[in-house]
Amino acid sequence: MSARLAWIPWVLAIVAAAALAFAVGRFTMYSATGVPTPDAVDIGFARDMQVHHEQAVQMAMIEYRRAQDDVVRSLAYDIATTQAGQRGEMYDWLVQWGVPQSGRLMSWMSDSSGHDHGGASATEADLRAAMGMATDAQVDALSAASGTEADCLFLELMIRHHEGALPMAREAIDGASIPRVTQVAQTILTGQTAELDAMRSAQLRLGCTG
């Protein structure tokens, strides 16, 4: 190569270095800011756990007003405030991701448990029952109950409610792509498992027959 063209490799090398710097910048930008794309599990969990938590807050607020037993009243207070906070965070996930709050219940759950969770034929009421949620009539019965009867009914409904949350949390732990979603799902799994123990021992202590 003649001396007059010796600058060409240098220019090419500089262009290549600049291009590499650009690429490295892009790669580090989105890995450093940590914006993984939410998948169907992240979105479905954020939506359906809000629906689920909403009824837990409702029942816990009813029980908080009607409880006879102080321990159960404290548990109700704990559940209402914890789950109101959690569903607020889930609400904001969807806002930040720019996706609607609305979506078909349980469409993100696999059928590993053998239930037809997202089946097109299932009604909204079927899906809510599959999630361990109480019917409107059961919530009305809780509103009308008082004394130990209210405590026992609350424990019965809330135990089934918590049992419905656990498979959803497990599915999110397995399938979510956003680290915070996995973390919250783990918190729910751990926290509600502990609350299930507390509620079952309260049932025994109060002599609930349910």
Binding site: A19, L20, A23, V24, G25, R26
Partner: peptide
């Protein structure tokens, strides 16, 4: 170098868009 630049552009996560209704 071209492949790396292209990859850095192509692999960038797309802004999530599920229609305009959000």
């Amino acid at each position: 170098v071209v492949a790396i630049v292209v990859a850095s552009v192509v692999l960038t996560p797309r802004p999530v868009s599920y229609g305009a209704f959000d």
